[in-house]
């Protein structure tokens, strides 16, 4: 992304809460970050994880619990949630990283289902009720996050920092090696790269950032619930990434905005939303496999 693009994104982000209901904006940003983190894995490493909800939801629970029970500040809560997701990502990664394709998807799914079970049964999670009444608290001890704009700009700052991190990672030598592995793993091995370790690193990074998104969401909505860890959430993030365009930097953001926006705007028409999202997905897979951003970029490049 060049400087103009960055400035546009930042200006839009700063002005957004005056045009859109701030809490909706925060939800969009949380899912956008989740999708970006997921894209780091699917789009740049070619690994399809079907268990990312475990990191997203797991971090939400840990963060929610930390600020509720230990009375930590929101930032500490998010950091602890993020760290937890990173650790969990390491465990998942070590167990799953040697598997390929479908097997990788399935073992991450199975592990995530186990996390789901733990979130249901552990004494501190509130079972089916989830964690409720998580306090938003004071950022740095003096910024009151109960004020919508304060909360929004905090979320926006978190999003931009993580987004910048992903951008750096993708454009670093590490990102280049990842792409090389995705394109031709055998070749990368023969070039002397320790492929498994690089993949594992990507996995842990992706899990960590997914955790940041989940932890932030639990502060914004003041809850952590089983929905966040269910396999449907894992499916939804795949959807967002694909619709927006995997392997593109902005694609997951666009995808998340589209899907969450659709769900929000069309919530009055009941489960037709599911039908519409399903159809969108089918059309994307059949016609726009590069996703919205991917296809647009291609058209753009072609026309010049």
């Amino acid at each position: 992304m060049n400087r103009i693009a960055w400035i546009t994104v930042i200006v839009l982000g700063l002005l957004a809460p005056f045009a859109v209901y701030p809490v909706l904006m925060m939800e969009l940003l949380c899912f956008a970050l989740f999708a970006c983190a997921f894209n780091l894995l699917l789009g740049y490493s070619g690994l399809l994880s079907f268990g990312h909800a475990a990191f997203f939801g797991g971090a939400a629970y840990i963060c929610g619990y930390a600020v509720t029970a230990w009375h930590l500040g929101p930032l500490q809560g998010i950091l602890i949630g993020t760290a937890f997701a990173g650790g969990l990502g390491l465990v998942f990664g070590v167990l799953a990283i040697r598997r390929q394709g479908i097997y990788f998807a399935m073992i991450t799914l199975a592990l995530a289902q186990i996390i789901f079970f733990l979130c249901l049964k552990m004494p501190f999670t509130g079972g089916e009720d989830g964690l409720q009444g998580v306090p938003r608290g004071m950022l740095f001890g003096f910024i009151d996050l109960n004020k919508p704009l304060n909360m929004y700009y905090t979320v926006f700052a978190i999003f931009m920092i993580c987004f910048w991190l992903i951008w750096r990672a993708v454009n670093s030598p590490f990102g280049q090696v990842l792409s090389a592995i995705r394109e031709n793993e055998a070749r990368a091995i023969s070039l002397g790269y320790s492929v498994e370790r690089i993949k594992l690193l990507a996995f842990v990074l992706s899990a960590t950032l997914a955790g940041t998104a989940g932890a932030t969401k639990s502060i914004v909505f003041q809850t952590a619930s089983l929905t966040d860890v269910s396999w449907h959430t894992s499916g939804e993030v795949i959807l967002m990434t694909l619709v927006g365009g995997m392997g593109t930097l902005l694609g997951p953001v666009v995808g998340a905005f589209t899907i969450v926006g659709l769900q929000h705007e069309l919530s009055s028409i009941g489960s037709w939303v599911t039908v519409i999202i399903g159809l969108t997905f089918i059309v994307c897979v059949l016609v726009f496999r590069r996703g919205m951003v991917g296809e647009l970029t291609r058209l753009w490049k072609r026309s010049f």
Binding site: I238, L239, L242, S271, I277, G278, F281, I282
Partner: peptide, 14 residues
């Protein structure tokens, strides 16, 4: 897998 996921959503929503 992704396509059939979409098909499943459509049927279920319907």
């Amino acid at each position: 897998l992704l396509l059939t996921f979409g098909v499943a959503l459509v049927l279920q929503g319907f």
